[in-house]
Structures are given as C-alpha cells and as structure tokens.
Design a protein around this nucleic acid. Structure first.
Length: 751
DNA sequence: TCGCTTTGTCATGAT
DNA sequence: AAATCATGACAAAGC
C-alpha cells in the first residue's frame, strides 16, 4: 500500500498533473481499485471533514488515514473514519467506472482556458474533459472564449450566473469586494466569486479528477461530449442547452450520442472540488448558500422554464427524433422499455433484467441494485423524473405540464438546510470559528492534566517550610522559580523574615525542629497570596496541579525564602539595624494567632499546633504543663488554622469547578463546531450524490429506446426508483401521481 | 473614598 | 462523640 501510494503520489500524480497542465485530463482513479482511497484524498488529503484531524500526512500512515503523531485525537480520528466510511458508502451507488464527461471536447479550440486544451482533439476520450467539467466551482471562467461554455459549467454547480467574459480586472476586483461584503452580510454567493475560483481552479481540477473519475462512464463517456449543459446559476440544476461545439467526431463514434443535450447533463457538483477545507468557513458558507439556492430553485418554475426551454428548433423535441437511424443503444437494457404503460413492477434494472441486456452494457452495471440499496435508503421510491425532469420539460415538448413533482432529495435537503442555516447562523452569531475550535481542541487535549500534576507539590512544600531567611537549614533550598512570581506579588512579600523564623504551615520535621529550637511560632499567611497570584494567571496554571492536593500539606504556600532572596537586600547591607527591621517585618508577617501564641508563650509552633495529627497533638500537649488559657488558645489556633486551610481548599475547589465548567463549555463549543463541519460535509456529499444521480438518470434515460429505436420523451416517461432498488420506466402521469403521494406522506408524518 | 478582591474567621452541617 | 472537613457568610485588609 505504501509503495503503491508512493508510486501514485510521485508517479501517476505527477504525470497527471503534467497532463492536466497541458490540458489533458487523465482519470487516474479509474485505474485504481476501489480498495484504494480516492486519488483525490491521497493527493490532497481527505475531505474537509477529516482534514481537521490532520490526516494530511498520509504518507506516514499505513492506509492513508492515520492519526497525526503530534495531535492524537482518537475521537476525531474515529469520527473521521466513520464519516469517511459513511461518505464512501453513500458513494457506492454512484457508478464508479463511468461518467460522461467530455466537456473539453466542446471547448473552443481558441479557448485560452488556462492554456489547456490545445486542440479539440483531445479526445483523450472521456477522461479528458472530466475534470474541467466536473468542477463547476472551479472557475473555468478564465477564458473568454470558453465563457459560454464555462457558464454552463459553473451553473452546474449552482454557483452563479456566469461572469461576463469582458470583465476587466477592476470589474473582477469590484465583484470580489462586493461578494465579500455579501459574505459578511451573510449572503454568501459564489456569484461574485470570480477571482476566487480562478485561484482554486488548478486545485479543483486535480480534485475533480479524483472525485469524478469514479463516476465517469468508461468508454461510453464520449456520448456525453455532445451534450451541452446549462445550469441554473441559483438552483444548480443542470439543463440542456444547445451549443455549437463540434461534436461530429463524437457523434460519429457514438451515433446515439447526438441526442438532445437535455437528457444527459453532467451534473457534477461543484463541491466535488476537494479544495474545500473544513476550516474554510467562508467556503462552507458558500456551499451552504449554493445548496440553499439550489433547493429553493428546484421548485422554481421560471427557472425550469429557462432550463428546459428550447429554441424554436426545440432541441428536446428533436432530441428524441434525432437519431431515428441510430441503432438501439445496446448499452441500455430497456428491452421492456416499450411497455409504455409499464407499472411499477417493471424494473429496468431488476435482477432478471440485469441478466439480459444489462450484461452487455458495462456502463449500466453500476446501476445494478446491488449498490442501489443505499440509494434506496436515501431516495426511497423516488420519482426520478420529478427530480431531474421538471414538469416544465413537458412544456417544452408541447405537452401539458403536470404539477411539479416533489423532489425527495430536495425535501431532505430542505430540512437539513434549515437546520444547517440555523446552526450556521448560531455559529456565526456566536462568533465561533471552526479554526478556533480546532485550536481549542488541541489545547484541551494537551492540558487535560491541569489539576492532576502534583509534581510541584513537594517542591512547594519544602519551599513553604523555609520561611526563615536566617535559617540555613530548610529555607536555603527553596525553589528559585517561585521567587520570580512572588517577588512581584505584594509589598508584604518583600518583607524579610527575621531569625525568629516565622514559618508557614508545614509538617516538615526539619522545619519543626528548627522552629522549636528557636521558639518561633506562627505561619505566613501571605504565602498563599503568591500562589494565588500566579494561579490566577491563566497562562501559569502550574500552580494548580498541586493545589488539588493541598490537603494537609498546604503546599500552595509559596516559599518565603524565595521572597527573601528576591526582596532582601544583600546580607552585608543589613548588618546594622537589620535585625530590628526584620523583627518589625516579622511582627507584621505574623498572624494574629501567632502573636497570641507568642504572647501566651506557647512552647511550640503554630504549625505543629495546626498540622500535627490528633494523637501527636495531644501527646505534645501532654508534654507541657499548659494553663487553661494556653490550651484554649492552642485549640483555637488549631481550629482556625485548619479552617483557614479548609477555606483555601474550598475556594480553590470553587475556582477549579469554574474552570472546569469553562472548559466543558469550550469542549461543547468545539464539538458543536465539529458537528457543524460534519453536517456541512454531509450536505455537500448529498448534493454531489444528487447531482450524480441526476446525471445518471439523464444518461440512462437518454439511452432508452422503444421498440422502434426511438428515444423516450421525457415529457411522457420517467424513471423511477422502486423500493427494491430497481429502476422503472413509467409514464409521467403515473410518476406524477406517485410523486404527489410521496409529497403527502412527509406532511402526514409531521402532523 | 469607593468598589472590588483576597483572605481569615465564624457558624453550621456533613463526614 | 470527637475530630475533621466543607461551605456560606461576614469582615478586615489591600489594591
């Protein structure tokens, strides 16, 4: 796999790119087995839904989909895998081997289009034109000569009305500015995105190569070359349009291909372009808007009229009569197509039917129900005619146009889009940036140990113990790191500690011994401030970890020695009067209880009083002959000391709780953003599939011939998916009826 | 001086 | 039951 990938990426890929540069499109994916990931993904990485997990580094992974070594996000990883599998599953119904894409053939030889297509003879068959066509989004607009055609292409993507080929650079810039403004206003329209598409074109071409190749119709692809597609700029619906391209060569090769363009439209989604980045909110928004517009316009009669309106010559009418002499297309297994009144039971691609003519046409094999299950699950028994051949088509054929057929996909998308709109709006309102979300994601993935790291506790413990500046025993080793934060904390921190050795809460025996020897009592209430100061600093949460474990060791107190070293003047400067000053400082530093203890001449430190276990504490008391007042004070000191620590712990817990809640909120926001991205991706995939189904429908329908070898009129017949995966050719009237039924069902359900 | 934050303390209830 | 812990409330201190 690795070798193959390497080969692909370094060999075929380069070759493909090279060919693309000279205008020749090669469908490399076609030569790859389905087991291999789409070339597009190999080259450009997985779809945007997965890129967030940093799968770009595919070469480092076994199968091309691995986990980024530096940001292992299993959740996203598996999510990405799941999504990938889902998307691929959805793709299965698509015809992997065939797709009629011959747009390049139609290109005006003059076409300066990106310098490609040196000659119309590209004939490199179907593959040649695929990419360009497939990428309506791609900005094929560059060439003026091609403009007429490029419009069509772009319209395919429901992108936007074609931009005038006469646009000057200023115009383009202006359009771009206006477009951006619209984007800012929430009116994402690709309409104005001229320059943008130009930029993306190259990339999109490559992407589409990979994406479309699965869909290309092998061999037969040339048929589509003769077709000219127009897509409504807003709806994204493709529609046939006559164009003057010279398709003689194609028609010769495939006589039946001279059919009207209307039947076989290349409906590749503009979204197929793999350039879409999950973080490209703008692009997503554009896609969203395009989908919305497409959905909205699918019901738009006027659009359909335009789409299917035919010139006086009525291509449609001629479409089905153009090839009277053309032999029945053997590729289409419509042996029963002559059944004008065929019921639903009639299945074009039912298993039994498949065994017959279908076998002869490899191009139709992909439609075999084996893959149709997924399609059925999505479309159900859908009247494809309603989907792809709006009633207006009938009008063009001078037939009475029936009521508009509901678009199951449209309905599906409608709901999804509504949700999406709301979600996107919400996301936008909240100013939530997917990029930021991903960043947060990384951050939180890495700082999960916020309150778990207790490694600091020991050091802080020792540091807090060394409260006495003069005492060389315990405080000398106080961490220097704490000095930086503590030195600047408070004025009180600058106070020096006298030899009396006021100590903070500590159970350290060493310190206790020292204190006992010196008769020093009390603790440093100010210590906690230092820790808190840094603790409050979001960027310095290092203090937090051991705060969790404050428990009985009170390590949150910063090392007083650190303060000493930072604030105390050089030893030599304190020679005279230093002791007095230190004594003053000490008095100030001592807590009330310490003062009381000293006043009462308590023979041991407050630290011991507070921190010793009950048994030891009682034992200690028993060693001394203490008065009631002393005992009472000692008990109060112990009580207050413990309560003090408890209060500190309580406050820390509160703060931790708040922080955790804050993190949870951010996590939820991150998940929300991720889900939004996924949804956008699914919608995008859905639109792609819809368009592909549409193209397939048109392809199949266009090949159908009755017993006389004549094509069926789309105004009279329609293809319909049956529940079992088969495809039926039924009269339009019947299809309309069924469409109405289906239209009612969802409504009933909602009720 | 006022407002805010931090900290210590008390009271109370829970463990 | 005593000791300890947790926490709300209050006030003092500091900024």
């Amino acid at each position: 796999m690795l070798s193959l990938k390497k080969y692909l990426t370094e060999g075929l890929l380069q070759f493909t790119i090279l060919l693309s540069l000279i205008g020749v499109r090669v469908d490399v994916d076609t030569y790859l087995t389905s087991q291999l990931p789409p070339l597009r993904e190999i080259i450009l990485g997985p779809s945007s839904a997965y890129t967030q997990t940093q799968f770009h580094n595919l070469r480092n992974t076994l199968d091309g989909y691995g986990v980024h070594p530096k940001s292992i996000d299993l959740d996203n990883y598996f999510t990405a895998r799941r999504l990938l599998s889902q998307v691929r599953a959805l793709d299965r119904f698509q015809v992997p081997t065939t797709e009629v894409n011959a747009w390049l053939v139609h290109r005006d030889p003059e076409g300066s289009v990106s310098g490609s297509q040196p000659s119309s003879g590209l004939t490199l068959e179907s593959s040649s034109g695929l990419q360009d066509v497939t990428g309506p989004d791609n900005g094929v607009r560059e060439s003026e000569t091609e403009q007429g055609f490029s419009e069509d292409l772009e319209d395919l993507g429901a992108v936007a009305p074609p931009v005038s080929g006469d646009l000057t650079k200023e115009d383009i810039d202006l359009i771009d500015i206006l477009w951006r403004q619209d984007i800012d206003l929430g009116a994402g329209r690709e309409i104005f995105d001229y320059s943008h598409r130009q930029k993306e074109q190259d990339v999109d071409k490559d992407l589409q190569d990979g994406a479309e190749q699965d869909d290309t119709w092998s061999g037969e692809g040339a048929e589509a070359l003769a077709r000219n597609l127009l897509v409504d700029g807003e709806t994204g619906e493709s529609f046939p349009a006559q164009f003057p391209a010279d398709i003689s060569s194609i028609t010769e090769a495939v006589p039946s291909e001279s059919e009207p363009p209307g039947l076989q439209n290349n409906l590749l989604s503009p979204l197929l372009t793999g350039t879409d980045s999950p973080f490209d909110l703008e692009q997503q928004w554009q896609d969203l808007m395009s989908i919305m517009e497409m959905q909205a316009m699918e019901v738009n009669t006027s659009t359909n009229e335009i789409l299917y309106s035919a010139p006086p010559g009525d291509p449609l009418s001629t479409n089905y009569s153009l090839a009277p002499n053309t032999p029945i297309n053997q590729n289409v297994s419509l042996h029963q197509a002559s059944l004008g009144g065929c019921s639903q039971d009639f299945s074009l691609f039912s298993p039994e039917v498949e065994s017959l003519p279908v076998a002869s046409s490899s191009t139709l094999l992909p439609l075999v129900p084996s893959n149709s299950t997924s399609l059925n699950s999505t479309f159900g028994s859908t009247n494809l005619a309603g989907l792809f051949f709006p009633p207006q088509l009938n009008g063009t054929a001078n037939d009475t146009a029936g009521p508009e057929l509901p678009d199951p996909l449209g309905g599906l998308l409608d709901e999804a889009m509504l949700d999406e709109i709301s979600l996107m709006d919400l996301a936008i309102e909240e100013g939530f940036n997917p990029v930021q979300a991903s960043q947060l994601e990384e951050e939180f993935d890495s700082d999960s140990g916020l309150s778990l790291d207790s490694s600091h506790s020991p050091s802080s413990l020792s540091s807090s113990e060394g409260s006495s500046s003069s005492s060389s025993s315990s405080s000398s080793s106080s961490s220097s790191s704490s000095s930086s934060s503590s030195s600047s904390s408070s004025s009180s921190a600058s106070s020096s500690f006298s030899e009396e050795g006021a100590v903070g809460y500590s159970s350290d025996s060493e310190t206790l011994d020292l204190e006992e020897a010196e008769g020093a009592v009390g603790y440093q209430p100010e210590y906690s401030k230092f820790c808190r100061m840094s603790y409050q600093d979001p960027s310095q949460l290092s203090c937090l970890p051991y705060l969790e474990h404050v428990g009985h060791n009170h390590t949150y107190n910063m090392a007083p020695s650190a303060l000493d070293s930072a604030d105390l003047p050089p030893p030599g400067a304190l020679k005279k009067g230093s002791k007095e000053k230190q004594a003053d400082f000490l008095d100030k530093q001592m807590s009330r209880d310490e003062h009381r203890a000293r006043a009462m001449k308590i023979p041991f430190t407050n630290d011991k009083i507070i921190n010793l276990p009950v048994e030891e504490f009682n034992e200690l008391l028993s060693k001394y002959q203490l008065s009631e007042a002393q005992l009472s004070l000692i008990r109060d000191i112990r009580r207050r000391g413990k309560n003090k620590m408890a209060a500190q712990n309580c406050r820390k817990r509160k703060l931790d709780t708040i922080l955790n809640l804050e993190r949870d909120v951010e996590d939820l926001q991150r998940d929300k953003a991720r889900l939004l991205r996924e949804k956008v991706e699914f919608l995008r995939s859905l639109r792609q599939m819809k368009q592909k189904v549409q193209s397939l429908y048109q392809e199949v329908f266009g090949r159908l011939r009755d017993e006389n070898g004549r094509p069926y009129s789309p105004s009279q017949y329609a293809l319909q998916y049956a529940g079992d995966g088969s495809v039926l050719l039924i009269p339009r009237t019947l299809a309309d009826q069924q469409a109405r039924r289906q239209e009612r069902k969802p409504k009933d359900r909602r009720k």
